[in-house]
Every structure is written in C-alpha cells, then in structure tokens.
Design a protein around this nucleic acid. Structure first.
Lengths: 160, 160
DNA sequence: CATTTATATTTGAAAGTTCAAATAAAAAAT
DNA sequence: ATTTTTTATTTGAACTTTCAAATATAAATG
C-alpha cells in the first residue's frame, strides 16, 4: 500500500474534497477581500462622482499613457464592448478624449484629459485613508510575500 | 536627522507615493488574480448554464442551509435588490425555493432544491481542473500562508 | 392598544453590461 | 489589383445591477 494512493494529504482547500472548508480555500479569501475592497473603493469614489470601471480606466491611462480601446480592456480587466461604452460616457464627462490612430484607421486611441488628471488626484485623496488602514500591521516583508504568492497564483490561471 | 523623517522606507506599494509601482501593490495583484479567476469560473459555469452570482448563491445555500435574502446578500457579497432578483430568476429555473418565515412575516427564506444540488455537482465537475491547475506548484504551507495574509488584509478592511 | 420607529424585502425606473451581429480598415492571398 | 481573411471596434437588443422609493411586518413607545 503506497502512501501515495492511501493517505492523501489534507485537501481542505480542494472544493471537490469531502473535508472541504471554505476558510482553507484561497479563492474564498480572495473573494472576501475583493468584496470588501471593492465596496470600500466604490464608496470613496462615489464622493468624487466616479465608479470602479471609470477609475480603472483612468489609472490605466495615467500609468500607460495613450492606449487603444483593446489595450484598455486588457489592463482594466473588462470586456471590449463594455470598454467602448464606458469610454463614450467618460468622453461625455470630459475625462478622456479619443482619436483615430493616424497610421491605422481601425484603432481608437484614448487619452486622459486635464480634467481626468484632476480626477485622479481627487481619487488619491479620497482613498488615502483606506490604503493606509489596509496595510496596518503588515510589514513590508509580509506585503512582498503576499504579492509573490498572488503573482504565483496569477500565473497558474489560464490567460484567457 | 532622524531616520523617521528623512529616509522613509520604500513606499512602492502606496498609491499616494511618488515611487509607486503597481506590481508592488497587493490590490493590483488581487484584482489581476480575481479577474482571471472570475473569467475562468465564468467560462466553466457557462457550460452548465449558470453564472457567478447564481453559483455563489448555490454555494452559500449548500454551506449554510436555508438562509434569508439578506443573509445571502452578506455571504455572497451582493446588494440586496440584486439578490432579490437573482433569487426570483433562480426560483423560475427551479434551483431554489422560497417561503415566508413562519414566525416573522418580513423575511423570505430561501432553500436549495434537488435540482439546485444537482447543479452544484455539475459545477464541481466543471471547475475541477481549474482548481487543480490553480494550485500547481503551491505547497500546502504556501497556501496556508496565503490564506493567513489574505485574512489579515480582510480584517483591516472596513466591514461595511 | 394605537402610534411611532425599526427591520426585511420588493419594485420600477435608470444605468450598466453582455452577446452576437454589423461595420470598417488593414493584411494576406490569389 | 481584386478578393479573402484577419483585426479593431461599435452597435442594438436582451439581460442584469443599482438606486431610491414603496410595501409590509415586527418591535418599541407612550
């Protein structure tokens, strides 16, 4: 009787296992954290008249500079038609501007406006306390370890 | 010159900091993982004619047994009116059933049906490979560490 | 016990997301 | 040089989520 087939290691983190406990399942915690985090950010953004999708797009444009619609979809983790429509709304709100790429008529380039940059500043202010609070008691080493573990998980997941 | 005021420790994980790098920011990775994870689960669920909100509710009911609508909202991280309407749809699909709580006419109790339990089994099957793949190369110690870190972060975030 | 206040949920209208199909430009193949 | 295929985006219809207001029951108060 090989130990391989007879006594499996604890499988409490495996949703298919009989002794599954959600508290031992990383995606349970991932969802919990994501839920609270999103709710908190959403609340902070509402004060500045923004929401999470718009915020993500602003952040993307600020970090990456001018982007095509599909590049935004990739960075901001949203579907293409969704991004198209958010950009249309954001353009109406004056947060971004668009133009057709000069050397390729298919792509729509999106860039952040002055007003968009101002909004980014407002958001920083509105979320400052939240981030400070989030990392309370977490040493930098712990934060790094967390980043590494999440990154590892990320690379295990199918790309798309 | 105190080190406290002069040379602050690295603040690359702080979005307000000048040397902010998104790769050092845990919520960046959290969102990336959550994005891929959701996309993968969504894809698996589509084969069984389900989506993430319905799945979350089925899981909640399976783990917790009969729940009120607001208990579901809490566990499944969704807003109350959203849950009301998802439950209505799920009832139409025969996945759950509802009744008014006998000793309190305000609360709607929701319970999973046989068909709902069958669906849970189907989902297990449909997501089996995904979970296996996700934890590839991650030792149990690492998984536990990740859980602990996420839990710590969770408790730092505002409850609601 | 009538009235106010609190709690649990639902509803209707508005806003947002998604799918599949349509458009439109570029690149490849004939 | 046309035609075909691929790539990038948009659109319209269907569906979902959200907000604020409405409903309905229970608990607390005078």
């Amino acid at each position: 009787m090989s130990s391989k087939s007879r006594s499996p290691r604890s499988q409490r983190f495996n949703p298919g296992s009989d002794d599954f406990h959600k508290e031992d399942f990383p995606f349970y915690w991932l969802n919990q954290v994501h839920g609270r985090y999103s709710a908190a950010v959403e609340k902070a953004l509402k004060k500045v008249n923004l929401d999470i999708p718009r915020w993500r797009i602003l952040m993307t444009l600020k970090e990456e500079g001018t982007c095509s619609v599909s590049e935004i979809a990739l960075h901001a983790i949203a579907k293409l038609p969704t991004v198209t429509k958010i950009i249309q709304r954001m353009k109406q709100d004056g947060l971004v501007d668009t133009r057709v790429r000069s050397d390729d008529g298919r792509v729509t380039e999106v860039m952040i406006t002055e007003k968009g940059l101002d909004a980014v500043q407002d958001i920083r202010f509105a979320t400052r306390d939240l981030f400070k609070q989030s990392f309370k008691g977490l040493t930098e080493a712990k934060i790094q370890r967390l980043n590494k573990l999440l990154e590892e998980l990320f690379h295990n997941l199918p790309e798309h």
